[in-house]
Amino acid sequence: MATHSALVDLASIPTVAQLYRTRKLLPAETIDPAFPPSQHLNDSVSVIRNDLTKLEVDCIVNAANKSLLGGGGVDGAIHRAAGPGLVKECSGLDGCDTGDAKITQAYNLPCKYVVHTVGPIYHSASRQDATRPEKLLRSCYRTSMELAMQHSLKTIAFPAISTGVYGYPSHLAARAVVHEVRQFLDSHVGQNNALQRVTFSNFEQKDMEAYAKAIAKYLPPTPEDLRIAGEDTT
């Protein structure tokens, strides 16, 4: 799953089910009964290693800072790709609190909207309350998905929020995030405005490895996924 410079349409982004079936994602040795396999979920979640700004989805999520006026990493890449219209619109939003999210147009990006969310700085938040970083990180994903649904968007792609310079350990972040997304999708099954695809778009290999382990735990393969992959399900 290498990075690419060309645009990537939704059909080219592999779902969890497809990754299991092609053995690019391996199941955990045991299935946690608290998280039974779900074909709906495995068809609704994707993971890819790619440039977030190249994905042709309804909206992408920006790992922004509190000013919303651009920065380094994913934030800088999104602002550069979107063009000056994005920072102009962001300048009128009065910033954003950690764990919250705001939405803008996408300008020159191939998506329709950008959701801006501010992740926790891991060590700073940890000193205040050991559970605070996870609560804030989960809120970033939950509020971003809620915003997407409010705007009738069906497909959303996330970067690995806070796992770069903000210092959140990739394995801890991935566990919290995949669990939060599973809960969110489960709670909106059957709703007319439900999300149809949530994509984790990682740039670093460490995040890909962390998400692979978290997905194996919280989104285990269905018997159909294993059967197509050539596994014995009897």
Rank of each mutant, 00 (worst) to 15 (best):
T163Q: 10
Q150P: 04
I48P: 02
D94E: 15
N193C: 13
N193A: 06
D9Y: 02
G71Q: 10
H188P: 04
P36L: 05
S67T: 12
R197K: 15
K217N: 11
L19N: 12
H179K: 15
V115I: 15
G85M: 10
K206V: 02
L52D: 14
M208S: 02
C90T: 15
S139E: 07
V74F: 10
D94C: 14
T222Q: 04
G92P: 03
V47A: 01
A6P: 01
Y113P: 00
L109I: 10
T3R: 13
E224N: 06
H179Y: 01
L69I: 06
A176E: 04
L68P: 13
N62H: 10
S12T: 14
K206M: 06
A28E: 03
G73W: 03
T15D: 11
N108L: 13
T3S: 10
A229Q: 10
P14C: 07
L153N: 10
P14N: 01
V16H: 00
R182L: 02
V115T: 12
S91D: 13
Q128V: 12
S139D: 11
Q128R: 14
G99M: 13
A77C: 09
V165N: 12
L69H: 05
A64K: 03
P27V: 03
T15P: 07
F203V: 04
L136C: 04
A77S: 13
F200Q: 00
D51K: 06
I161T: 01
H4Q: 11
G76D: 09
G164H: 05
T143M: 08
L147W: 12
G119Q: 10
R80P: 01
Q191W: 04
G70I: 05
R175P: 03
D207S: 06
Q191L: 15
E231F: 15
P169K: 04
D97W: 10
T104A: 06
K88A: 15
V177G: 09
S144A: 15
S44Y: 06
N108V: 04
Y107P: 01
K24L: 09
V177H: 09
E89K: 09
H4R: 14
A216I: 02
